[in-house]
Structures are given as C-alpha cells and as structure tokens.
Amino acid sequence: MYSGRAHKVGANIDTDAIIPARFLVTTDTGELGANCMEGLEPGWIKRVSPGDFIVAGENFGCGSSREHAPLALLGAGVKVVLAKSFARIFYRNAFNMGLILLEIGDGTAAIGDGDRLEIDIDKGLIKNLAGGAEIPFQPVPASMKEILDQGGLVGYVRSRLDGQPA
C-alpha cells in the first residue's frame, strides 16, 4: 500500500522537463532527485515529500532515453507515477529502475492537485481520500511485475548471468 499526496502536471511532460540536460553530469540518484522537474518549474522539488505521487496527462516521459529521468523521480522520493499514458522508452526505463507507473486513462480527472491518495497495487485500486473517489486500474503487466519483483532489470540479468559459465 502506498500513500501520499498527488502533484498534478500536464500532458507531454518531457524528459528535459523532468531533468534538464545540464544536470546530466552525474549518475547519483540523490543529486538528480534534488533537481527533479527543474525544467518544468524551478524549485518544484520543495513541494514534494517522500512517498508523494505525480499525476500526469498523456505521454508522460516523452523525449530522450535518459534513465536519469526515472532516477530523478526516485531521488525526489516519488515511487509511483499515475498518468493518462506514458512514453515508451520512459515506461521501460521506469520499471527497470524500480519506479512504478500506473496508466489510469481518464481516472486522472478524479484526482486534484494536493489530494491525498492511497494506492493498492495488488488490488488495482486508488482511493482518493480528499473526495472519496475510488479509481480502479489495470494491474501492472506480469512481465513488468517480474522485473519489479527482482528489484529492477539489474537483478533480473544478475540471476540470468549467475547460471552462465564464466
């Protein structure tokens, strides 16, 4: 069960908004997190507490393949992003890094900026404690769940390589 506050953002939030290129001179999650969403609104990170959610419109994460984008979100304490839809490379990257993405379509309309949410990943249910709305969602696809359960792609490949002759 995840709980936290919702931070609403618009459609087509690109990876330059999530983490501008000038901050790509590190691979450190904490440093990236400190500059999360600097390309959307300077100082955005100050509003976010660990465990909070981002609630976005269509095509969240479009643009570059930088894995620094999901890392910046994780570094900012965001563990789950809800959106109408996600861009493809970002989708893959997020699960590889252990960031959970939930595609909830028009369900985003029932969530306001600042609303407190409770999310049950296994049941596939979001509760909006602000207005009482319940938003069901399609559970995370099995192949993605498998990667998440192994702590991301690193764990998955590690287990495969363990079985290989050196």
Binding site: S65, E67, P70, N96, L153
Partner: peptide, 8 residues
C-alpha cells in the same frame, strides 16, 4: 532507443 540499464 532504450535506457542505460536495458543497453547494459
């Protein structure tokens, strides 16, 4: 295109 970990 993919992310760094997929490439790795």
């Amino acid at each position: 295109g993919m992310g760094s970990t997929d490439a790795a």
